[in-house]
Design a binder for these strands. Structure first.
Lengths: 358, 358
DNA sequence: TTGTAGGCGTTATCAA
DNA sequence: TTGATAACGCCTACAA
């Protein structure tokens, strides 16, 4: 004889709305309405239903509800590299905002591989996510052609405008940030300032580079193309750039990297070469990743409000999902804050170094 | 006529299996079978169906399929703090392994808040995830009582054994790692070694602390309780611990932290106080977070293979999901690797410091 | 205030 | 080798 628990549904099987309805002697519709608080239900039945729901630990199946309502309360978040300190901070913000609205976050890590990005987005479409957030990623026209654009859910991009598809966009004021930083360096007497670029495909990287050149010109300085080095936002690329720069016959007195990770890479390379920062060279980054404020790094940088970037993107997306497509694409540009720390200082007279044999 | 914006006005209705069936003049069952490769279909119809599928860009709705098959191909991953550098590396590993098996990752960030953990797990149950991975988190008996345990999907815990529920478990050999590190310090002449503990609730933190005490005893050294400081795995708690330790009347010659973030906090505090590492004090951590190997940090630590921890956990989980609950819980213990870097050196003679006035 | 019934898009079972 | 049909669990017109 099997011992039946009168309260719990048969082991493992979760109770359905029918079980609750039966237990209460009402119709499933009533149970649904009690839970959805859609139409008025007599206090009596309401109480009964709620009691039974609790007793049976009934929770509606999100799958069934999703099928019926054509919603999943899930948002796909596509990042290039979750291990890059920038990503988790943004993702943390997205997560928080989604949590507040009872949505879930499906994390997709592309490793910046195009095919994987496409495959992931396709699978997100299959899963019927309600929306998509692209973190420092975009959809090229070519990539977008891989699937039926009409079936893409609402989209928000972070730090990189979407090429193929109009979408809401959250970014930081790159131009202002870099300009502030450059002025800080000019004030310190720097004239020979190098720039480590980010990926060319990145809108924000491009904007930062552009602002650098504009600031140089505005200051009446020549932009030496030798002093612009291509990086890819990784710490390693920063280290390589750093080595190259200090080995030059007439090296820069300051190095600006398009993000903190590269700046930190530069710092590492300089340390390995025994070059003092900021006495010999000044270094600065962009983002203000959490480790940058550590006393041992102490990097002068431009803060991008990463967490806020994430929450903002999520909220724009949820509004769009609820509100419908009526409004035109929105762009939110958060302010960049210059954080002056220990890696920038007065420029060493440019001539001195030349006398030192390589 | 309104110009339709493809993304902002999304949801061109996606074709269903019925559309494909109709277009081919076959039954939906046949389409399903072609796609699932379940039963034999004549080459002719097969080709026809596949062609139409391509033409219509038909993809089965994961929601409908999930409802029918009682599977979602989604795994919930619950982390305490996604911004802690440890998390993204593990999550990256999980993500990769899930990707290989075409599963998705639903990320839940609890901020170590119990109610949020409960609410998240409940929502994951609602969503019918096929499995759950708890990263440096556990379910206490009390927490587990919040929902019907029978309805919990298969579970894998990382770095913290599950109290309430039997589950597969992936961790690192904490004891061996700490023992190796302690022997390294002993060999350098350290006797007065402090320990910064992790959260008491963490199994791995407890194991690391235990191994520290065992090593001290085994070496015939007294464990001075003053030298054990409670931290919480954050960089701030490490900084606080560091300050307290060096302000002691007879400070330690070496400080071991239960994780890298706290060790890095210690380093920051020492730097702020002008104390040289490793000349005045040696410092070591546990995890080998990516920044630890940077030339400016250069932290001696014990590597936990984080990425591999993630992939292993995911694979155990997927096996369990496919294979059923038959087998008993498994434990995988990865080996810990001591990484000797620049923050550990010969012990300064214990007497010297006493002469220097505070 | 409540109940009935249809359908969301699949897959599985049975029948042909 | 293929087709019809019944679920899966829910929400929501429409009816009562």
């Amino acid at each position: 004889m099997t011992k039946q628990d009168p309260v719990l549904a048969p082991s493992g099987r979760r109770p359905t709305i029918l079980d609750v309805a039966a237990a209460c002697g009402v119709s499933p519709a009533t149970v649904s309405n009690v839970l959805a608080e859609k139409r008025h239900i007599s206090a009596e039945t309401r109480a009964l239903v709620l009691a039974k729901v609790q007793e049976l630990k009934y929770v509606a199946s999100a799958t069934a509800r999703g099928l019926r309502m054509n919603r999943t309360w899930s948002i796909g978040v596509v990042v290039g590299d979750i291990a890059n300190p920038f990503s988790p901070e943004v993702v943390g913000g997205v997560e928080e905002a989604l949590w507040e609205r009872k949505n879930n976050l499906i994390l997709c890590n592309t490793g910046f591989r195009s095919e994987r990005k496409i495959a992931y987005i396709q699978s997100l479409i299959d899963k019927h996510v309600d929306g998509l957030i692209l973190v420092t990623q975009t959809l090229t026209v070519k990539e977008a052609s891989a699937f039926d654009i009409k079936r893409l859910p609402p989209l928000v991009t972070i730090n990189r405008v979407s090429e193929a598809i109009p979408s809401d966009h959250v970014t930081v004021d790159n131009e202002q940030g870099v300009t502030d930083l450059m002025n800080h360096l000019f004030a310190l007497g720097h004239k020979r300032i190098a720039f480590v670029k980010g990926l060319t495909s990145s809108t924000s990287a491009a904007a930062r580079h552009k602002a650098y050149r504009a600031a140089m010109k505005h200051q009446g300085l020549l932009v030496d193309h030798e002093l612009t080095i291509q990086g890819d936002y990784t710490i390693e690329s920063g280290a390589i750039a750093g080595r190259r720069l200090v080995e030059m016959s007439s090296p820069p007195t300051a190095i600006v990297a398009a993000n903190d990770m590269m700046a930190i890479g530069v710092l590492g390379a300089l340390r390995d070469k025994g070059i003092s920062v900021p006495e010999d060279v000044s270094v600065a980054g962009f983002d203000d990743v959490s480790i940058s404020s550590h006393p041992l790094i102490n990097l002068t940088t431009i803060e991008q409000p990463k967490y806020e970037t994430g929450t903002t993107a999520a909220r724009l997306l949820l509004e769009r999902i609820e509100g419908g497509p009526a409004e035109p694409p929105r762009v939110v540009m958060l302010t960049a804050n210059l954080k002056i720390r220990g890696t920038t200082g007065r420029a060493r007279p440019a001539t001195r170094r030349k006398l030192i044999p390589q």
